[in-house]
């Protein structure tokens, strides 16, 4: 039972992070808008959900979509601020956004200061409290919905517009794409998913504190996304699983976890910058060949 619980918990964390990483992948992988502050959007969602349920007694089932919505709006704002900025200025602005949000979480008492908010309630369905497997089921359903949204975006004009903007903004404009609108949307959708993940995070860990949403966390999310392959549907999910599972396997090396994590990231980016499943990567070429062999 104990061991079962361990795997369930691990799986829940993977799915929650995967939702946020999928969102980041929409902003950065599809639309090419660098976002180094994704953790702040998780934080916005987590605190929204925690405050709504704890201080206003609102049901989790309403707080969850509201968290997504508030993060979506925050993403629109960051997108609107960033519209005119060139690449590195944009990167810096998103870093700044992350630092500002963390400072705000730490400073204003409503967010519980450095201890954060304790005792975020578990969701209930017909009076039945969701924990363990049932919480996993909830997270899995929401993960699937987000995955479907992701697949749908990839096949819609929206996704095509995102990719066009990533490849060349000027050309996109002359082909009838309102670049500003789509950039704002790219940030908003990515942030909205992070907000949903944040709500699930809050009600699972039952504690929300500023230290979970720092810039270092944003970099971790980004490394999950890049590890799997930016701009692919399944890469970010696999990347998330790997980044979470690997340190668990090498538990004796736990003390050196951050060293391992950063070293892997550096080596991978240096030699396989498109990620494990990205276009033209070693694995992708192998898999394509393999599938090709089958078709013959």
């Amino acid at each position: 039972m104990q061991i079962g619980m361990y795997y369930i918990t691990l799986l829940i964390w993977i799915l929650i992070y995967a939702i946020a990483v999928m969102g980041l992948n929409i902003t950065m992988g599809y639309a090419g808008q660098v976002n180094l502050g994704q953790a702040a959007f998780i934080g916005i969602g987590a605190f929204t959900s925690a405050i709504l349920t704890m201080k206003f007694g609102i049901s989790f089932w309403i707080a969850l979509p509201l968290s997504g919505l508030i993060s979506f709006i925050a993403g629109m704002l960051l997108g609107a601020i960033s519209i005119r900025l060139k690449y590195d200025f944009l990167a810096m602005t998103t870093i700044g956004f992350n630092f500002i949000m963390v400072a705000i979480f730490l400073y204003y008492p409503i967010f519980g200061g450095s201890f954060g908010l304790l005792g975020v309630p578990r969701p209930r369905i017909f009076g039945y409290k969701l924990t363990g497997v049932t919480y996993l089921a909830l997270v899995f359903v929401i993960f699937l919905i987000c995955l479907l949204v992701n697949i749908w975006i990839e096949r819609s004009w929206l996704g095509l517009a995102f990719e066009a903007i990533r490849e060349d903004e000027d050309a996109a404009q002359t082909l009838g794409i309102d670049v500003k609108k789509f950039k704002v949307l790219a940030f908003a959708i990515g942030a909205g998913m992070a907000g949903i993940a944040g709500s699930l995070y809050a009600h699972f860990s039952m504690r929300v504190a500023y230290s979970d949403f720092t810039f270092a966390k944003s970099i971790e999310l980004l490394s999950m996304c890049i590890l799997g392959g930016l701009g692919t549907v399944y890469g970010p999910i696999i990347g998330t699983a790997l980044v979470i599972i690997l340190p668990e396997i090498f538990r004796p090396l736990r003390q050196y976890r951050l060293i391992m994590h950063t070293l892997i990231l550096i080596i991978l980016l240096r030699f396989q910058p498109q990620g494990l499943l990205g276009k033209g990567s070693y694995l992708e070429t192998k898999i394509k060949k393999w599938i090709g062999g089958f078709q013959k």
Binding site: W157, L160, A161, E163, A164, A172, L175, G176, I177, D178, F182
Partner: peptide
């Protein structure tokens, strides 16, 4: 991409 002017 250029065929989508009515959809954007």
């Amino acid at each position: 991409v250029a065929c989508g002017k009515d959809y954007y």
